[in-house]
Write a protein that binds this DNA or RNA. Sequence first.
DNA 1: GAGCACTGC
Length: 662
Amino acid sequence: MADFDLSFLAKPPVLLPIARHKRSLQYAVEKYPVVIVVGHTGSGKTTQLPQYLHEAGWCAEGKMIAVTQPRRVAATTIAGRVAAEMRCQLGQEVGYSIRFEDMTSDKTKIKFLTDGMLLKEALSDPLLSKYSVIMVDEAHERALNSDLLLALLRKIQKKRLDLKMIVSSATIEAQAIANFFQGGQDDQPSQCKIVVLDGRSYPVDIQYLDQPAEDYVAIAVETAIKIHKDEGSGDILVFFTGRDEIQRGLEVLTDYAQKILPSDQALQPLPLYAGLSQAEQMYVFSPAAEHTRKVILSTNLAEASVTIDGIVYVIDSGYVKLRTYDPTTNIETLRRTPVSKASAVQRAGRAGRTRAGKCYRLYPEAAYQDLLMTTPPEICRTNLAPTILQLKALGIDNLASTQYLTPPPAKLLARGLEVLYSLDALDDYAKLTTLGSRMAELALPPMLGRALLASVTDDFNCLPEMLTVCAMTSQQSQEGNNLFFSHEGERAWEASRRKFATEEGDHLTYLNAYNAFVKENQSQRWCQSNHLSFKALSRAVSIRAQLERNVQRLGIATRVDPRTPNATTDRILRCITTGYFANAARMNPVDGTFRSLISSQRSTVTMHAHPSSLMFNRKADYVIFSELLESGNKIYIKDISKVEKSWLTQYGSKYYQVKEGK
DNA sequence: GAGCACTGC
C-alpha cells in the first residue's frame, strides 16, 4: 500500500458508479461486437473499463487494448492514473502513445493514444491486428479524427470478426452511433449494445434572462458580482468566446475585487484560454486563498478539454467561436456562433460536479429552444483535402460509398479531390499516385507535403531548408499564433524581427530564425532577448526531426551537393511554389491589398496581409500564402512569400488550366 | 494592426 501515492484519486475505484456494472459490461463486450457506453464524466468509464477488460482476459495471446482520446493531455494523464491504480510503472503494462512521445514497451497491454495516432498506425497495420479491443472515448464530441476512426473501424470489423469495439458517448449521440454500426440492417441480429451508466452529478438550477443581452460581457460581470454578494460559497466559471472578451471582463472584475473590504470575502478573477502559457493556466487549478472566491473567465477550453474542481456557479454567454471552411471561396472563418443545446447542457453541468449548483444563461429561454441540438460535426465544416489523402492511403477509395456517422457535404469532398488532383496526389481516375501515397506518410498538410517532396528533386535540391520551412509553417504555437511576440510592446519585437527578416517574405524569415535558434544551441534566454517564441521554435525542432525521419523512410532523400551546400533562395521559393501555386495573389500597388488570382474570386475578394506577416507593410507584386482566413469582416492571408508570375503557371499548370482555361 | 478548441509512426 505504501508504495504508491493514490491520494489524488477522487474516489477509490470500487466506489465508482461503474463498479456495479462490471459484470454486465464484461458480458456485453463478450457478446456484442460494438458496445456503446453512455456515462457522464466521473462515471469512471475511461479508467475502469480497460481494467475490467484486462481482468476478463482480453490481453491474452499478446493482444492489446487500445483506448483513444481526442486530445493528447487526456491520453497521457489518464494513462498515468490507470498505471497508478494497477500499480505498474507507466510505460510497462499501461502506456500511452502520442505524437513525439511513445511511452509503451513490449509489455504494454493497455495503451492510451490519440485518435490521430491510431489512424496513423492503421497505415502500416491496416487491420489494427495488435488489438483485441478498441475503445473510442468521447465520440460524441464528433471530432474529425474520431469520426474517421469510427468509419475505419466499422470497415475493419467486417474483416476481423474477433475485434471488439467500445464507443463512449454522451446520451445525445448514442442512438446515432448505434444506428451507424447497425448499418440499416435491422433484420440482422443486433450488433450493438448500449449500456447506460448512472452518473455522479448534482442538480443544476438554470436561470435565463428575460431579454436578449446587448452586451453579454457586461451582464456576465454584473452577474458574477451579484453571485459573489448574495450567494453561498463556491467558485464561478464564465464562458466567453475569446481573449478580447476575457480581458475586458477581467479588467472590470479586477477593479471591483480591489475595492472589496478586507472583512468581506475576497474575489479572485482568473483568465483561461489556450493562448496562455502553461504556468499562467495553472493558477486556475490551484485552490484559492482562504476566504477567497475564484471567478474563472474561460473560452470553450473549460467545456470539455479541462475540468476545474470547486465550480458551483456557471455563467454562459451562449456563444462560441467556431472554425468553418467554405469550399467555394477556400476561406476559413472564425465566427462567433450560438452554442448548441448539447454544449449549453455540458456547460451547465460544470456547476454540478461537487454539489448542487446554478447556471445563469445570458439569453432568454426561447433562444435556448431555438438552438441546434448539437454542434455540426467537424467533418462537415473542414477542409477535407488532408482527410481524403489519409483515407485513400488507408485503402478507403470510394469515399462516396463509405459510411460516415455524418456524410460530409459533396462540395467539401469535390473541393478536396480537386486540390489533391492539382497537386498530382491523385490521377485522372482519382486514384492515389506514388507521390500522393508519399504525401500521406508525412504528417503535413498536402500543399506543404507536396513542396517538401519536390525539394529532393534535382530541380530544387533543397531538402534541409524545406524541412525547416515545413516544420516552421506547420507548427502552431501554443502561446498565441506568433513566432515573434513581446510583452514590451510592438516596437521591441518589430526591431528584432527585422534582424531575421528577408526581402522574400515570411517563409524564408522563418528559415533564418530557425537556423539562428539552432546556432544558439536552442537557448531559451536567446529567444527571450530576441522576442521569439521558445515554445514555437522547440516544437519546430521536433517536427523537423520527425519529418526528416519520415522522408528518410521513404528512401527518396538525395545527397546534398557538396559544391552548393546551401540552396539559393530562388530555388527554395520555387520549391514552395510547387505546393502553394493555388494560394496566389497579386498586390494592388495603390492600397497594398491583395486580389486572388483565381478567376472565381478575383473580382469579389479583397485580401489583406495579416498583421503577423512581414508583408503587412511591405510592397510586393505576386505572392503565395499558406493560410486564408476571415476574421472580423476582413479577409487575411498569412505566411506570405514573393514569387514570380511565371512560376505559378509553370508549377501549377494543371491548376490554372482547370480554373481558367474554359 | 490580430490569434476558438484540437491533432499527425
